[in-house]
Design a protein around this nucleic acid. Structure first.
Lengths: 174, 174
DNA sequence: ACGTATTGCGCAATTA
DNA sequence: ATAATTGCGCAATACG
């Protein structure tokens, strides 16, 4: 008893396939090992040609049917297509990776900006607060004035009009 | 995009090409035949070093010595290890993907917050502006007072002290 | 020596 | 038919 097919879990029986890569005569395209080592030896392997395939039955090219427009594994077309696809895959992956990286960076930038904005908000809030307080003072002032109209230029005891310091708020940015 | 398929379509038939690895000789893990005909014989690889998988094909096998406690390829150990690694790979990739997704989401969140903050800043700026203007008015007022001390409680001609409307700034948020 | 975790790569199926 | 994505396995390598 073994596990029977579950659903996602694999244990898949691979289909096998793996092919030995056949060398391509001209390594022009992408044969350079970027950082790793990959070398393909153009070598044919004795796979028991036409005959003994071993059971599988289809291990051989002999079938007389070989169209170039068909899926042939050993066809030139095939190899070419594969190579193209490989290239595309590579490109795609590169882009994907780059994108992820960019996204990460964007997060950082946004975070930074966020902090800046928050700081600014804090500052503005402070300024506002100061101004409001000042305002209240003045209001009191006026009130006093109104309250004691007879006392002309006299008396503001608790009056400190130091508004000059608060007015210089330069909010520069962006 | 593309989230479908992939089940057990094994319509694969390989022919030719040299395939190397394939199968789990000892059907330890699940080897149930798909139901059709597909059989894989443990085949030995002729000469190709490690051509096996598609990718890793590294072709630089140690000059000598390569088998010791590991009967490469057709060993049970091997298969087991492969399976484990496959699992790990899957896991790793899943995680990677998830992470990328999370990052993207983070970007969105941050962007949103940014907008909110900016709006708030704008609002605060406006409030500040209003208050400042009000202040100027009052300053003029005072100036007038000073200018015409003899005219006690009279005269502010261009004086509109409607400050009540501006004072009610309630900046609530979040 | 041993395990998992990452990473690059090729293959094949699917999608656009 | 082509290019782009995506899932997957293999193998090398990094990491413990």
């Amino acid at each position: 008893m073994s596990k029977r097919s579950q659903q996602k879990i694999n244990t898949e029986q691979n289909r096998g396939t793996v092919s030995v890569i056949q060398g391509q005569a001209s390594g022009a395209t992408t044969s350079g090992p970027p950082g790793g080592s990959l070398q393909r030896v153009p070598q044919l392997v004795p796979v028991t040609p036409a005959g003994g395939g071993g059971g599988g039955g289809k291990a051989t090219p002999p079938p007389s049917k070989m169209k170039k427009t068909s899926g042939d594994k050993d066809s030139d077309e095939y190899r070419q297509r594969r190579e193209r696809n490989n290239l595309a895959v590579k490109k795609s992956r590169m882009r994907s990776k780059q994108k992820a990286q960019d996204t990460q960076q964007r997060v950082n930038e946004l975070k930074e900006e966020n902090e800046r904005l928050e700081a600014k908000i804090k500052l503005l809030g402070k300024e506002l607060s100061v101004l409001k307080d000042l305002f209240l003072e003045h209001a009191h002032n006026l009130a006093d004035n109104v309250q004691a109209p007879g006392a002309e230029g006299a008396s503001p005891a608790h009056n400190n009009n130091n508004n000059n310091g608060a007015c210089n708020n330069n909010n520069n940015s962006q």
